[in-house]
Computed example of a mutant assay.
Amino acid sequence: MAATTKKDPQYMSFLDHLEELRWHLIRATTAVLITGIIAFIAKEFIFDVLIFGPKKPDFPTYKGLCNLSKTMGLDESLCFKELPFSVQSRKVSGQFSVHIWTSITAGFIMAFPYILYEFWKFIAPAMYDNEKKSSKGFIIICSFLFFLGVLFGYYIITPLSINFLGGYQVSKEVLNEFDIDSYIALVRASVIACGLIFELPVIMFFLTKIGLVTPEFLRKYRKFALVIVLILSAIITPPDIASQVIVAIPVLVLYEISIFISKAVIKKQRKIS
C-alpha cells in the first residue's frame, strides 16, 4: 500500500520520505535487473562484439588510426595487425561470475535514463515551479552526456589502454596472458569513469543553483582543476602522455562549458531577484 499511496510532500515525515526513496530505489534496481537479464541473454553480442571488440585489429579505432597514419605519410606505423596478448579464465566459476557482473554493468548503462527519471521523481516535489522549468530536459541532457562519455571511453580510452598495456613487456620471457576479470575491469572502468566524468556540466549546474559554486570560483581555481583533470586522466588511462592528453582535452572543454553554464545560472537568478 505504501508504494501506491501518494502523500503531500509538505506533510510527509522523515520516515515517509525514506519510504518514498525506498520505492524509487526498488524501481531503479528492478530496471537494472531487467536490462541486465537482457544483456545476460545477449551473451554473444555483449562479449564477442562489445567486450572483446577492442582486442581485435579490425576495431574501428584501430582502423581510424591506420587510415590517419597513411594520410600523414607514416606508412603503416599506426596499423595494428595483431595484439600480442591472450585472455584466460583461471577460476572454476570465473567465466560465469564475469557473465553475471558484466550483465549487471550493461544493465546499469542501459537503464541509466530510467535511474535518472526515478531520481528526478524523488527530488522534483521539493522544487519550486520555476526551478522545475529551469531544470527542464534534465534527464535528456544527463543521459546524452553519460552516453557520450561511455562512447568516448569505449572507442578512445579502452583501445588505447588495451593496446598499450597489452603490448607492454618488461622482458620477452614474460607473456601477456591476462585474466578475464582484469581485462573486463579495464573496459568497465574506462567506460563507466568517462560516462560519469562527462556529467561535470550538470553537476556544476546544480552546485551553482544551491550557491556552492560561482563562475568566479571556477575561473579562480582553473589551474587546480587542470591538475585534478590530469590526475583523473592518469588514473583511467595507460601511463603514457598521449593518452592522458586525449582524455584531458574533452574534460577541460567540459570544465569551460561548466563556467559558461554557471554564469548563465547566476545571471538568471539575478533577473528573478
Rank of each mutant, 00 (worst) to 15 (best):
M1I: 09
T4H: 07
T5H: 08
P9V: 13
Q10L: 13
Q10K: 14
S13D: 14
F14C: 09
F14E: 13
L15T: 04
E19P: 09
R22L: 15
R27H: 14
R27T: 05
A31V: 10
I34H: 11
I34Q: 11
G36N: 04
I38V: 15
F40Q: 11
F47H: 05
F52N: 00
G53A: 06
K56Q: 13
P57Y: 10
K63P: 02
K63Q: 13
N67L: 03
N67D: 13
L68P: 05
S69D: 12
K70A: 08
T71C: 09
L78V: 00
L78W: 14
C79K: 09
K81T: 08
P84M: 09
P84H: 04
S89T: 10
S93V: 12
G94M: 02
G94Y: 03
H99N: 12
I100M: 10
I104M: 15
T105Q: 08
A106W: 02
I109Y: 05
F112M: 11
F112Y: 12
Y114E: 07
Y114A: 02
Y117E: 08
F119S: 06
F119H: 07
K121H: 13
I123Y: 06
E131D: 11
E131C: 06
E131N: 06
K133M: 07
K133Q: 11
S134A: 15
F138Y: 12
I140D: 08
S143A: 12
L148P: 01
G153K: 04
G153P: 10
Y155R: 04
I157T: 03
L160R: 00
L160K: 02
F164Q: 04
G166Y: 01
Y168V: 05
V170M: 15
K172S: 14
K172E: 15
E173Q: 12
V174I: 14
E177L: 15
E177H: 14
E177Y: 10
I184M: 03
I184L: 11
I184R: 02
S190N: 08
I192V: 10
C194I: 00
L196Q: 07
F198Q: 00
V202S: 08
M204E: 06
I210W: 13
V213G: 01
V213D: 04
V213N: 01
E216G: 10
F217Q: 05
F217N: 02
K223G: 00
F224D: 02
V227H: 10
L230P: 01
I231D: 02
I231K: 04
S233K: 04
S233D: 01
P239A: 06
V245T: 07
V247N: 01
A248H: 00
A248F: 03
P250E: 09
L252F: 10
E256S: 12
E256I: 07
E256N: 12
S258P: 06
S258R: 10
S258I: 09
I266W: 04
K268R: 15
Q269M: 13
K271E: 14
S273Y: 08
